[in-house]
Computed example of a mutant assay.
Amino acid sequence: MTKFIDSPYVKELSKITFRLYAHGWDERNGGNVSYRLTHEEIAPYEDTQTVLKNFPIAFDGKDLAGMYFLVTGTGRYFKNVIDFPERDAGLVRITEDGKSVDLLWGFNDGGRPTSEFPTHLMGHKTRLKHHANQRVIMHCHPTNLIAMTFTQKLDERRITRILWKMQTESLVVFPEGVGIIPWMVPGTTTIGEATAAKLESFSSVIWPQHGLFASGSSIDEAFGLIETIEKGAQIWSIVQQQGGKIEQTITDKNLNDLAKAFHVVPREGYLEV
């Protein structure tokens, strides 16, 4: 029987964590990824059928009871996951009472899920409620986007409009815009609750002076969302380096025309009619 380490899910996680690192968005042990899997997807792997350990979680996960998550480990460097997936990642199942998780595979050196795992679970719970197909959450530190949070007012409409106008694809990829929370200590219930509240209507949430929390229906979709947001921030940064003077831009009319052509609905009130 095929080992879980050879599954497409572990391979996807291993590749994307390295790519996040290679982009410069997950230095050292910064960042984390969780990937919700179904019972049918893990059933073929014999080495996922035994509980190896149990970890308490600081979150009431009763609504997610029985669900499986492939998640990166706390303190683990993203550059290493591709070489040591069974050490730096783990497959866990939420227990029936929602107070802990059973480890079914991975963390073979005694590790445990990322300290941000409760925040991920809060995010999964919210996204499942509104977008049942969403199964991936990524947190990383996109350089240019973080820089914007030092120089721009933390206003969702303002920052969304900047990102939409920096490249034509932005509006198509994230028509709902980007959410923003105040600066908070990471790894806490407080930041998890605030992020989950934003995920009610945004697929991505900016953590000022820290990074981005993004969701998607697949590894590719979540990663592509981050790439597109960061590309907009990068172009904006380059424009500022060139003096910041805008000779031509994507207008609100252009964006409205774009939305109609691609059948997306921009966030209400963000564009001039």
Rank of each mutant, 00 (worst) to 15 (best):
I5M: 06
I5S: 10
P8W: 09
K11P: 02
K11N: 08
S14G: 08
L20K: 03
Y21A: 10
H23I: 07
W25T: 01
D26H: 15
Y35K: 01
Y35E: 08
Y35R: 01
R36W: 07
R36P: 06
T38D: 10
T38M: 08
E41F: 09
I42A: 07
A43G: 11
L52S: 11
L52N: 05
K53F: 14
P56C: 06
G61R: 00
M67H: 15
F69V: 00
G73Y: 07
T74H: 08
Y77Q: 13
N80M: 13
E86A: 15
A89E: 06
L91S: 01
L91Q: 03
D97T: 00
G98D: 10
K99V: 03
S100L: 03
V101I: 02
L103H: 08
G110K: 01
G111V: 00
P113R: 00
E116G: 06
T119C: 10
T119G: 10
H120E: 03
L121K: 01
T126P: 06
H130D: 13
H130F: 14
A132W: 12
N133Y: 14
P142F: 08
N144M: 06
N144S: 14
T149F: 09
F150M: 07
T151S: 13
K153V: 10
K153T: 04
K153F: 14
L154M: 09
E156N: 09
R158L: 15
I162L: 12
Q167F: 10
S170L: 06
L171A: 04
V172C: 15
V173G: 05
E176C: 04
V178H: 06
V178Y: 09
G179R: 01
I180E: 02
W183H: 14
V185M: 13
P186I: 06
T189K: 07
A194Y: 14
A197H: 12
S204T: 02
S204E: 03
V205M: 08
I206R: 01
F213T: 00
A214I: 01
A214M: 02
S217V: 02
S218E: 03
I219V: 04
E221P: 01
G224V: 05
G224H: 12
E227A: 07
I235V: 00
I235Q: 00
W236P: 04
G244W: 04
I246T: 04
D252G: 04
D252P: 02
D252V: 00
K253H: 14
K253C: 15
N254F: 14
L255Y: 13
L255C: 10
N256E: 15
D257Y: 15
D257W: 15
D257C: 11
L258Q: 10
L258V: 06
K260C: 13
A261L: 13
H263W: 13
P266A: 04
P266W: 04
E268H: 11
L271W: 11
V273T: 15
